[in-house]
Write a protein that binds this DNA or RNA. Structure first.
Length: 619
RNA sequence: GGUUCCAUAGCUCAGCUGGAUAGAGCAACAGAUUUCUAAUCUGUGGGUCGCAGGUUCGAAUCCUGCUGGGAUCACCA
């Protein structure tokens, strides 16, 4: 048995040639690394120069698996491209046993790997559990996402946030980090007081039970009621001679809300009771929504606990001369050297602003978890805020400042334009999900796929498909880009969609059931196998899966994983139409295909899992 | 106005650290089922990669400027 690492370091081709298990060596290191290595050796011994070999998959219109681009050598060696390419190609074939052939087109050297090597690659893939080869990094990361306000229910924008946060957590975990999912609930402030005031006036003591409305929606209803009353009071005041600005400040209901906020801060028992009652309703509602959309948290912070934090931190910064005080006692920091402005960190009266409590909460999070990295999944309207926050942390010499990252994502627009809560154009999360489930049911009925539409199992399938469609739709777009939510497209089950991938999985599982392949069955290839082009394409994709996970983690981008999974599913469907598994007469080939498609199904399931999407056994 | 992000087919989006004739899906049209699920597959048409320069063997990709759009620049959160 060969010791892979030593062989690689020696670059000893003759020695590697003797080894009958060359392919094992390839899998352990990754084939691109091996190839680059061999090419670099070839270039070194042929021309006496070192070149970092850049490899890419060979384009379909050319013969080969990988392409070495050597334009760089043409100039320095002052030889013609064919001369160089042929020399390297010949050398590689003469000194290695893994190449089948090569061809040279301009500055491109296309290399074809022996089919037997690919079979060994597949064989190695079949032995390992999908995703299990990635080593743990013994680094922890805290991912904060969702972070709702408690005055209204979740909407479409929150869904993008939740799906992103959950998926990124999963991806980071798969990439080797220890992940903690956190949520910071904004449960205090003027917004919830508005709902409280309106409820007090117009609520008639109704409850979610008496009204038959989910708690978060009920509280949201009073938030809207507040706004209505507020607006009409403003109009009245303007009619009786006030300016608009005066009216906005003097409207009795607004004055009342502000008084209520003060009373809340003074712990007025009656106000606290009301606050607790409404918030409990909201949490109850949120809980149902989170459960339905399949996201959760390991740790929940409440702003009512943290909003006073950060003042000691300001004091500390002041003592160290990092902050400065103005005549009115307000505290500031000068960030002009960072390309930012002067920023207020504490009011003249000693009360906090947004950034104050965020400074404190950030410290708290690191005290609680000592994580190397901390990620905030927050919309791009807060880009500036996070620049400021991180810059301050750096100036305060917090060791963790380097590990802070704002995962900024773009807004979700509707075909009709932007979502605006005041204009009632917001897409409610609960309604949306319910509609999608109903659509999934209707489409299944139409296709005649499901026999019993009313069973528990079917209900679970419809939920799976609906959420698969929705999550995939929102995650396939690169996070930082703003995106368009087209309701009709989002419930589409064809093409680049979640259900397309789910269907592919179900199809494979159907074959595996028919073949009575157990979930834990291990396939070991030991006969003579030749992979056909469609099989080879699948192997080619699957062997890259771990790299895709790592890239997605490095970029905090579920989109990378979504695109990969789609590609894999599409490639499988191409294979499926051209080759039969169950009707294959050659037992060796049938066995290989069963192993291969099982691996495809496992990879799809794993990848979709990292997107927070479940896949069905049948559909 | 300052800062910042974005601009690729009719629409929605890919395009890895610069590489070969820029790819998918949707929509349109034409096909494929005696064969493991047709929620599938195959084909056709569709592009001055916002514009103009620059860097080099080579640019959708990097640099500069411009145009258009979003966000932000609160003692709001």
């Amino acid at each position: 048995m060969c010791k892979t690492k030593e062989l690689i370091h020696q670059n000893g081709q003759p020695k590697a040639k003797k080894c009958n298990f060359a392919a094992k060596l390839i899998v352990k290191m990754d084939i691109i690394g091996i190839l680059s290595n061999k090419i670099e050796t070839a270039v070194q011994s042929l021309f006496g120069v070192s070149d970092q070999a850049v490899l890419q998959p060979t384009r379909k219109e050319f013969e080969g698996d990988y392409t070495y681009v050597f334009f760089g050598l043409v100039k320095s060696l002052r030889k013609s491209p064919p001369e160089i390419g042929n020399a390297i190609g010949t050398y590689l074939l003469d000194n290695n046993d893994i190449f089948e052939s090569y061809n040279v087109v301009q500055g491109f050297l296309n290399l074809k790997i022996k089919n037997t090597v690919w079979v060994e690659v597949l064989n190695d893939l079949l032995k390992t559990n999908t995703g299990s080869e990635i080593e743990r990094l013994s680094q922890s990361v805290l991912v904060e996402y969702s972070s709702p306000n408690t005055n209204k229910p979740l909407h479409l924008g929150h869904l993008r946030n939740n799906f992103l946060g959950y998926s990124v957590s999963k991806i980071l975990d798969a990439a080797g980090y220890d992940v903690t999912k956190a949520c910071l609930v904004n449960d205090r402030g003027i917004h919830i007081c508005k709902s409280m005031v309106a409820y007090k006036h117009f609520g008639n003591s109704e409850t979610p039970e008496s009204a038959g409305i989910k708690g978060d929606h009920l509280v949201g209803k009073y938030y809207v009621e507040f706004d209505k009353a507020y607006k009409s009071q403003i109009q009245e005041l303007i009619a009786s001679g006030s300016t608009e600005d005066e009216a906005k400040k003097a409207a009795p209901i607004m004055v009342e809300a502000q008084e209520m906020l003060l009373k809340w801060e003074q712990n007025d028992p009656e106000i606290i009771d009301l606050w607790k009652k409404l918030n409990t309703w909201v949490y109850d509602g949120f809980e149902k929504t989170y459960k339905k959309i399949g996201v959760d948290f390991d740790k929940t912070y409440y702003e009512s606990d943290t909003y006073l934090l950060g003042k000691d931190l300001v004091e500390d910064g002041l003592n160290r001369g990092i902050f400065y005080k103005k005549e009115d006692n307000s505290v500031w920091i000068d960030l002009t050297d960072e390309g930012l402005d002067n920023k207020l960190v504490l009011r003249g009266d000693g009360t906090s602003v947004y950034i104050t409590q965020d400074l404190g909460t950030t410290d708290l999070k690191f005290q609680d978890f000592h994580s190397e990295k901390s990620i905030w999944v927050v919309g791009n309207e807060q880009d500036y805020h996070f620049k400021v926050l991180f810059a301050i942390m750096k100036k305060l010499e917090r060791a963790y400042a380097e590990g802070c990252y704002h995962l900024s994502y773009g807004m979700v627009d509707l075909p009709s334009g932007k979502m605006k809560s005041r204009e009632g154009t917001v897409v409610d999360a609960d309604e949306l999900v319910d509609e999608m489930i109903a659509t999934a049911k209707a489409m299944s009925a139409e296709k005649g796929k499901i026999e019993d539409l009313e069973s528990e199992e079917s209900a679970e399938l419809f939920r799976m498909l609906a959420l698969g469609a929705l999550k995939y739709y929102l995650l396939k777009v690169e996070p930082k880009k703003r995106m368009l939510f087209n309701p009709e497209e989002s419930i589409d089950f064809q093409g680049n969609t979640g259900p397309f991938i789910q269907y592919t999985h179900a199809r494979i599982k159907s074959i595996l059931r028919k073949a009575e392949v157990a979930d834990n069955q291990i396939f070991t290839l030991d006969g003579v196998h030749i992979l056909n082009p469609e099989e080879l394409e699948l192997v080619f994709l699957i062997k890259d899966y771990d790299t895709v996970i790592k890239n997605a983690a490095a970029d905090y981008s579920p989109a990378l994983l979504a695109n990969y999974t789609y590609e894999l599913a599409k490639t499988f469907n191409g294979f499926y139409t051209q080759h039969s598994v169950m009707n294959e007469e050659n037992a060796n080939i049938k066995y290989l295909r069963l192993g291969l498609i099982k691996k495809v199904a496992e990879t799809i399931k794993h990848a979709m899992g990292l997107l927070g999407i479940d896949v069905p056994e049948r559909m």
